[in-house]
Design a protein around this nucleic acid. Structure first.
Lengths: 232, 232
DNA sequence: TGTACATCAGTGAACGCGCGTTCACTGATGTAC
DNA sequence: TGTACATCAGTGAACGCGCGTTCACTGATGTAC
């Protein structure tokens, strides 16, 4: 264990990356269920059993890809937020993040499907995916938190039956926000991916043609639904 | 070709239904990609080649299941609307339909995944699925149309870049509605399935616990986003 | 600096499995005269 | 009503395929003394 790695350690890192890259390529070509260790090995000029030096099973390789995908879309969201100027309005930050998520999804449709599509049958996500999976949501929460500490936020109506659950949500992952905002954030989070999924999965085929402004408007409306657009 | 079918015709209908039922069962157990003609035949006590008397290929069987699923969720939505009293408010009808879609999805998660999850790799939906796929959307449109012809509707804001596309959408499938409402309807439609997909696909695990009131509130907010809740 | 040993990447063959689809066939059901 | 023929459901064997995973092995790289 040295900081300057030996040839073996370096090779291991490189081959692991090459396997994941090739697996991603096959994901993009055929989808997650068609991903096969043998095909990956074949393409890399290795024998299929050699992959077992790097991933103990097909499922472990899938998990690695899932974690990478969550991290990639999470990072896209975080960077979009970071690129906003300090003076940018909460709504502007919100839509910038939404756009970044959409752009990433359109650029990586199969990796998107891997994490936001139907669960892969027979595969159950291990705990390792929980953290990365939360990143986009955390970015959205942070925008609301900043707004709340700044010029304020306009909490949406909160129906009585949802009060208790909204308070629990707020306590769990946004203790400084009004419960109504916490609940609205979770709903908006799901709705954002509804918009993206419909576009990526083809449901907008022959329904929405000019998709950029359509999405921008919907994202803006989501910002309104969580109270980021203050009433005039 | 007689109205009173012979034994052969009747048997054909029954066996076709049995094949689809068994296929649905396997869908529920293993997901779409794991659906195999051989396994279906085995379970029905037939030889695998016999299925080819009923479906020319695995893809055709998949298509039949997809059409059935779209029809089932569409019918659930239509019936939920029909069950509403004439005096019910547009928002009440809207949330009733949303609830019906959610209930159907939770009761048939794999059929739901088949139509609203990641596309099945290597399978492209034929034209026959287009009509059934539109049914839920049409129900939502009809609610807005009724509201518009009744006490009216409160069109949401429409950003300038979206105007042309919104007008096209309105002309295409809701000529009697304001363009802003047409665009908002499409967005709400996608967002509804975002909420349902996150619940069905497990993204709400450890995030939303008391899901009924959460969903009800979100559906109500969607109604508001298309202008079904008139400002007081 | 050199040697003996341990670690590890990659090989190649094999196991057992399930799949979609084709094909020539048998025998029962339906139809025309 | 009976007979000859056509239609069709279902059989069973076979084709060629790809898969995940295991295992004993070779040979190169790294480590301890």
């Amino acid at each position: 264990m040295s900081t300057v790695q030996g040839a073996r350690a370096r090779a291991r890192i490189e081959v692991t990356a090459a396997i994941k890259d090739e697996a991603r390529k096959q994901l993009a070509a055929d989808g997650a269920t068609r991903l096969s260790l043998r095909a990956v090995a074949r393409e890399l000029g290795m024998v299929s059993s050699a992959l077992y030096r790097y991933f103990p099973s097909r499922d472990e390789l899938l998990t690695a890809l899932i974690v990478d995908a969550y991290d990639a879309v999470g990072e896209a969201a975080e960077q979009a937020l970071a690129r906003q100027r300090a003076a940018a309005s909460p709504a502007a930050r919100w839509t910038a993040v939404c756009r970044a998520v959409r752009a990433w999804a359109l650029a990586h449709p199969h990796e998107y499907a891997l994490i936001y599509g139907s669960p892969v049958p027979g595969y159950t996500a291990p705990e390792a995916t929980v953290g990365p999976a939360a990143r986009v949501g955390l970015v959205l929460i942070s925008i609301a938190r900043d707004a709340h500490q700044g010029k304020g936020i306009a909490p949406p109506p909160l129906a009585a039956p949802l009060r208790a659950e909204a308070e629990r949500m707020a306590a769990d992952f946004a203790p400084d926000l009004p419960p109504a905002v916490a609940a609205a954030l979770v709903a908006a989070w799901a709705q954002l991916f509804g918009l993206v999924s419909f576009e990526v999965f083809g449901q907008f085929h022959r329904v929405v043609e000019d998709r950029e402004p359509f999405f921008a408007q919907a994202a803006e409306q989501l910002a309104r639904s969580v109270g980021l657009v203050l009433p005039a």
